[in-house]
Amino acid sequence: MDERKASVLNHADLWSAWKEDGDHEAKKKLIEYHLHIVDYVSSRLAIGLPKNVSKGDLASNGVMGLIDAIEKFDYKRGLQFETYASWRVRGAILDSLRQGDWVPRSVREKAKKIETAYQQLEQKYLRSVSDSEMSDYLDVTEKEFRHMLQEVAVMTLTSLEDPIREEESETRMSLLVDEKAKNPDHKVHEFYLREALMKGIGKLTPKERTVVSLLYYEDLSLSEIAEVMSLSPSRISQLHSKAILRLRGALDKDRDLLMQND
């Protein structure tokens, strides 16, 4: 216990030395101490990404996010740096992926096609639609549909982190996890988007809801979720893709309605 207290005190001293005195050696030690955050976040995001995207590249961009977090963090507010840094690291990695345009155009088109199909069929039937119904609508076999889901998995891994609108920084994920920091200018929009998201989650199948919950709330990786649910990683990836494409369809539909009413 004494060692633990000493470690915490030493850590606080590092923040003080860096923020109050501009001690770059202290900053270096803070970076080294928190590199595990970069490793954890980059490892999670690496799952399901194309082979041409190396974990090393993700980690390099993550380190830039960590440095940015250390430079901007206000240690006097008593907030958890690990939580703040995780979002900064994740954001830096996702920004690098978007700028690199690592998703082939054909995959983007397939994702949009599936998303639109979910949106139209579920609006028509007012319920979750089956793989068979989706296959018929898309004029493919169920096996081909599952293969399509596997292909677009690389997009859905980060889709909740994408901005709700291109010109804004607020993400779909923020509507799920951020109960603070409300933007007054978009309060009404946020309310309806949150409602749409919750309705969308309600339309997911039990397995899809479980995957979303374990991934975004319990912070498990896709491989860990596969173990928990006794399913193959590829099956978990398909369930995740379907869940995210359903949610994107629900949010995009609501967003369009809101824009029409503006």
Rank of each mutant, 00 (worst) to 15 (best):
S86I: 03
W87C: 07
W87V: 14
V89E: 05
I93E: 08
L94M: 09
L94G: 01
D95E: 13
S96F: 09
S96E: 03
L97D: 01
L97I: 03
Q99G: 12
G100N: 02
G100E: 01
G100V: 01
D101I: 04
D101V: 06
P104F: 06
S106N: 10
S106F: 00
R108Y: 02
K110D: 02
K112N: 14
K112C: 08
I114T: 04
E115T: 14
Y118V: 07
Q119D: 10
Q119T: 15
L121I: 02
E122G: 05
E122K: 04
K124Q: 13
V129P: 14
D131A: 09
S132E: 15
E133C: 08
S135V: 06
D136M: 11
Y137T: 08
D139P: 00
V140D: 05
T141F: 12
E142F: 02
F145A: 04
R146V: 11
H147I: 11
H147K: 14
M148K: 10
L149Q: 03
Q150Y: 08
Q150M: 12
V152S: 02
V152M: 02
A153T: 12
M155S: 10
T156I: 04
L157W: 08
L160G: 06
L160E: 07
E161M: 05
E161H: 07
D162A: 02
D162G: 01
D162S: 05
I164D: 04
E167R: 07
S169D: 13
E170F: 03
T171R: 11
R172D: 02
R172I: 06
S174A: 06
L175W: 03
L176P: 08
L176C: 04
V177T: 15
V177E: 12
D178R: 06
D178N: 10
A181N: 14
K182Y: 02
P184L: 01
P184Q: 04
K187Y: 02
K187F: 04
K187V: 15
V188F: 15
H189G: 03
F191E: 11
F191V: 07
F191G: 04
F191Q: 09
Y192S: 05
R194Y: 00
E195C: 10
E195T: 13
A196T: 00
L197C: 00
I201F: 10
G202F: 00
G202K: 00
K203T: 10
K203F: 08
L204R: 03
T205W: 00
T205G: 03
K207T: 12
K207R: 10
K207F: 04
E208Y: 04
V212G: 02
V212N: 01
S213V: 08
L214A: 09
L214D: 11
L214C: 06
L215F: 15
Y216Q: 07
Y216A: 05
Y217W: 10
E218Y: 07
D219A: 11
D219S: 12
L220Q: 12
S221G: 07
L222Q: 07
S223Y: 13
E224K: 05
E227V: 08
E227Q: 09
V228M: 08
V228W: 10
L231F: 13
S232E: 11
S232P: 03
